[in-house]
Amino acid sequence: MDEERKIMAGAVSYYEGVRDGRPWADQVEVIGPGAADAIMSGMRGWAVSASPELAEELVARGARVLRHAHVMSCDLEKVEPTEVEAPEGFRFVPCDRTPEQVLPAILAAYPPGHPDRPTDDDERIGKELAPLLEGRLIGPVLPCSLLVVDSGDTVVAGVVVNDFQGVPWISHAFRHPAETPPGTGALTLRAVQVRAARSGLAALGLAVTHANPAKRIYERLGFVVTETSMTVVV
């Protein structure tokens, strides 16, 4: 994503990127009158991420909701440093497996129709996973990241944390629902929190779709909503 904010029609500023193959105006801010008019006339076919108020105005004018999400953050100073063990029969391992080894569990965790599935294209998910795990997509993978493997050394769950512009960011939190006991995802995230706190990190961030019930798990583990945004297709 371009690191300089763009300005359009003196009405909005934004970061320009690409999302799901579309041009993307991210973190849109209103800087003048006529913001909705400017977006509807100048960004046809774009994905636009903005405040819920602006996004709902765009929807009223014909835009389609792509995602309604919350940014959440956990203060790691409040995390109890108690050691966390993987479920019986499973092991925590570093996030050093190949994309091909990790992908099946991610696809099982986020089947078509899941509110946090990144795209409807399995092939695209696979192509984006390699640069993510190699630290080329949003930033380096941090050592606090963990994968869960079963007795056959197959990856069945994990939490991937990247350095996103200086913010420790959970880019993937997943578990294979058929191959792991309930609670494995929350346990893995708890273990990552402990590792992150011990490494000196101050906080962990993530984004979760409004309709995803996992939001309740994050809240139970100390994450709080710091920002809400909506992404629409104009």
Rank of each mutant, 00 (worst) to 15 (best):
V141I: 03
A25S: 08
V192K: 00
P52A: 05
R195Q: 03
E100S: 13
A36D: 01
T154C: 14
Q193K: 02
L137S: 09
V224C: 15
Y110G: 10
A173P: 15
T154H: 15
A211H: 10
P115I: 04
K215H: 07
M230H: 06
E85D: 12
F174P: 03
D20R: 14
E3P: 11
Q165L: 08
E80G: 11
V161D: 02
D120T: 15
N162H: 05
V194S: 05
P140H: 05
D163I: 13
W24T: 05
K6Y: 08
V160R: 04
G139D: 00
G205A: 11
L189T: 00
P87E: 13
A202E: 13
D153I: 07
E3V: 09
W169R: 03
A11Q: 12
V192Q: 00
V59I: 08
P181L: 12
G32D: 02
E128P: 08
D75E: 09
V160M: 09
V48P: 01
M72S: 02
H68Y: 04
M72H: 04
V141T: 02
V12C: 01
F223N: 07
A214I: 09
D120Y: 14
L133C: 07
T82A: 10
G166P: 08
P33Y: 00
K127Q: 15
G89L: 11
G126F: 09
V156G: 09
E80R: 13
D163K: 12
I170V: 11
V148T: 06
E53W: 01
P81E: 06
T226R: 10
L142D: 01
P81R: 14
R5A: 00
A36Y: 00
E53N: 02
V148S: 13
G62L: 08
V156E: 06
G89A: 11
K215C: 03
E85G: 09
E29H: 00
L107N: 13
L133H: 05
V48D: 01
P118R: 09
R97S: 14
N162P: 03
R175M: 14
V160Y: 06
S49N: 03
